[in-house]
Design a protein around this nucleic acid. Structure first.
Lengths: 169, 169
DNA sequence: AGAAAGTAGCTTACTCCTGAGCTACTTTTC
DNA sequence: GAAAAGTAGCTCAGGAGTAAGCTACTTTCT
């Protein structure tokens, strides 16, 4: 584990070693920390987005539309599959964001079943500020690592992530 | 990014580079992947625990009791703070697990406000099997990395996690 | 062209969590 | 040793997600 300070995951692994020394807990060294980091950073960015009146999930919707580029339009279907959300969940998010006037729903001219979801001026302004604030928070959280370490970490995570996507379904 | 296959996070970062080239998205290379890995592995272990009749949250309760060692007893308060859960949420989990006879609540002899939560025989048997199955799934997911890479990854994550804990509150 | 199959988005019922407030009990303070 | 402050666990209301099922529309097949 190299010469590093012990963290919560080390403590858990030690406890397992005491009560179940037969277990191979090496994978927990990685996934236990990934889980905790995800939760910790989730809480942190949630607080960063709060002043803009949006939750993390709503941020994701606005960000996906923003990334799509002009005219900042996607269908609910595209949004829900990109964000790995059920259509029911997406309906709820869009309802909230539409009520806040951050986006607008309009009929899809080419498919009468479908809708188009478009960022409003206000939505564009909000996401452009919020994304910068969120990135700043993430950049700050990354500061314990130098550039080389951060790159190395990103590469290792990419390898791992690619593996989980492959065997999906 | 080294000679690696592109993943979903690379695609998102490229989109941002097109529409907002001013943004510094390096932190997303790390935290975007941590978020996705956490979700993907959460889904995966959820499926592994399902045959034992427990959810991931319930697994965590049983595992915390198991790790405590004999007599496998903790208070609801200890459990909810270890698992970063509100007391209301813990009440619900304990209700479900008690109904399934995986644990038992009894009065704390030293504090009449308090309770003791104890693993039953059945609970012990279930968690001992489930934890092995869950670890196997995690070990499998880690297989794209060799031992040295896994160690390196764990170290980098530990550094990052330690940083987020410090500035908590 | 008509039937069958597929897709888009919404609704409903349910789950699990949080936050706030409650009662019962314990610890601290003066 | 009585009052104040703190803590333990529970209840309730509200939020946000899923799964399943619905209607409306489109595509595919023959």
């Amino acid at each position: 584990m190299s010469a590093q300070r012990k963290d919560a995951v080390d403590a858990i692994i030690e406890q397992w070693a005491t009560v179940r020394p037969d277990l191979d807990t090496r994978a927990m060294e990685v996934f236990g920390r990934i889980y905790r980091l995800s939760r910790a950073m989730g809480d942190r960015v949630e607080k960063v987005y709060a002043p803009y009146g949006i939750s993390r999930g709503e941020f994701d919707v606005l960000a996906t539309l923003r990334r799509a580029g002009e005219p900042y339009t996607l269908s609910p279907r595209q949004l829900s599959s990109t964000l790995m959300l059920t259509t029911g969940g997406m309906t709820g998010r869009l309802d909230k964001l539409e009520r806040a006037a951050l986006l607008r729903r309009s009929p899809d001219p080419h498919d009468r079943r479908g809708l188009q979801v478009t960022l409003t001026e206000k939505g564009l302004a909000v996401i452009d500020e919020a994304v910068a604030a969120g990135l700043a928070a993430q950049t700050a959280a990354l500061s314990p690592l130098d550039d080389e370490q951060a790159d190395q970490l990103a590469d290792l995570l990419r390898t791992l992530l690619a593996g989980t996507q492959d065997s999906e379904h």
